[in-house]
Simulated assay, not measured.
Amino acid sequence: MRVKPLRRHGMTVLVSLIPVSYASAVTEQDFLARNTQELINLCTAPADDPLRVAAVHFCTGYLVGAYHYHESIYSGPGSQPLVCPPNPKPTRQQAITNFVSWAKAHPEYNQDRPVDAMFRYMIEKWPCQR
């Protein structure tokens, strides 16, 4: 990050030049969740963003819903789940925070569908013993 001094009316003001992907506010387009970056934007909405409450709830609902669907599909006898979380499972917030950190560390998946990135993360983190 570069910091550049700016002089106005005899005062020095510091202006931060932050990449747009981390500084931008949530947009209504992010709620389409077409790719991982849009979902991460929702999950990390700044505290002062007017859409923060809706964004964080959408993020949580999306991720929990996708995981519950996985649990439902692989709940029958003889099923082989894609992921096997530890017992006890991490809290919902821990799991979301860890996924967001992983996604930020793997920008190569920013344009993938969020559910694909989520399961890529979980398979890497909690693989099942076969």
Rank of each mutant, 00 (worst) to 15 (best):
T91A: 09
L82Q: 14
E108W: 03
S79T: 08
R34Q: 12
K4G: 07
L32C: 06
P5Q: 10
N110P: 15
L14M: 08
D49A: 02
A105Q: 13
R113V: 03
A47R: 01
L17S: 05
T91R: 01
I40H: 00
Y74M: 02
S72K: 14
D112I: 01
Y69H: 12
N87K: 03
F119C: 06
A55E: 00
Q93F: 07
V83D: 07
N35G: 07
H70D: 14
N87Y: 02
N110A: 09
L17Q: 08
K4L: 08
Q111K: 02
Q111C: 09
L82K: 08
L82G: 15
A95Y: 01
R8S: 15
R8V: 15
E71M: 08
F119M: 14
V15A: 14
D48S: 05
R2F: 04
N98T: 08
V64M: 09
T12P: 07
P107F: 01
N87L: 09
S72Q: 13
Y121V: 07
R34V: 08
V13N: 09
V13D: 11
C59K: 00
A25P: 05
Y62K: 00
R130G: 15
D116C: 08
S24H: 05
S72H: 10
G65K: 07
V115F: 03
A103K: 00
H57T: 10
D112Y: 02
K125Q: 13
K89A: 11
I96T: 03
Y109Q: 05
N110T: 09
I73Q: 05
I96Q: 02
M1V: 13
R92G: 08
G78S: 10
R92P: 00
Y74K: 01
G61D: 11
G78W: 04
L32K: 06
Y69F: 11
R2W: 03
I40Q: 00
Q37F: 06
K104Q: 11
F99W: 01
T36A: 01
Q93A: 14
T60H: 10
A33Q: 07
H57N: 12
G10E: 10
R130K: 09
E108I: 09
S16Y: 04
E124V: 08
F58D: 00
A25N: 03
N87H: 05
R2P: 15
Q29F: 06
E108G: 13
V56G: 05
Q129R: 10
M118P: 01
P77C: 10
P114H: 04
I73E: 04
F58C: 06
C59V: 08
A95C: 09
K104A: 12
K104V: 12
L51Y: 01
P107I: 08
K125H: 10
R120M: 07
D116W: 02
P114K: 00
C43I: 04
R8N: 13
E38G: 04
D48M: 04
A45T: 02
V83G: 06
